[in-house]
Amino acid sequence: MRFLVPIAIFAVLVVVLGVGLKLDPRYVPSPLIDKPAPEFSLTTLGEEPKPMTRADLLGRPVVLNVWASWCSACRIEHPLLVSLAQAQGVEIIGLNYKDTRAEALRWLADHGDPYRQSIFDPEGKLGLDLGVYGVPETFVLDGAGVIRHKHVGPLSEDIWASDFAPLLKKLSASDGTGASGG
């Protein structure tokens, strides 16, 4: 029976290391989940910038997508965002992060613009308050402006279908008045 001991230890090690391999070391759980989105006072990205604040995000569930023209991974998810906005009418607000207005607008002209509005954040101040550490990142805010989900890295159809679509459905069902149920 004694030979079972090293085998058992080995088996435990294999399981622990196997699970460890599947974890994503870049995933950092956000402390902002279920917290109100931060206040901000910025402008929109358009040619004629208009002021934009947290109040503009309230009243309905919103997908907030952090992007930049210098971000190569953003190109991976961009066609998905365009199709979600155009074919399914999903409301996506962009957060243009540490970019220049001219380059950002050119990038949208080249790749398509899925955003209802983009918030222009050249210094990354709102990005800092949102704990952004790797563009692209995508948040879901409920109607009361509470952050309900955060995804780091490019979106894919699978991630959208498993993490975003059901949550948005739930939020818009329960979110007539902006009350955020738990």
Binding site: V28, P29, S30, P31, L32, L128, D129, L130, G131, Y133
Partner: peptide, 8 residues
């Protein structure tokens, strides 16, 4: 920092 990025 912790408020934004967590204990990590």
């Amino acid at each position: 920092m912790v408020e934004r990025y967590g204990d990590f």
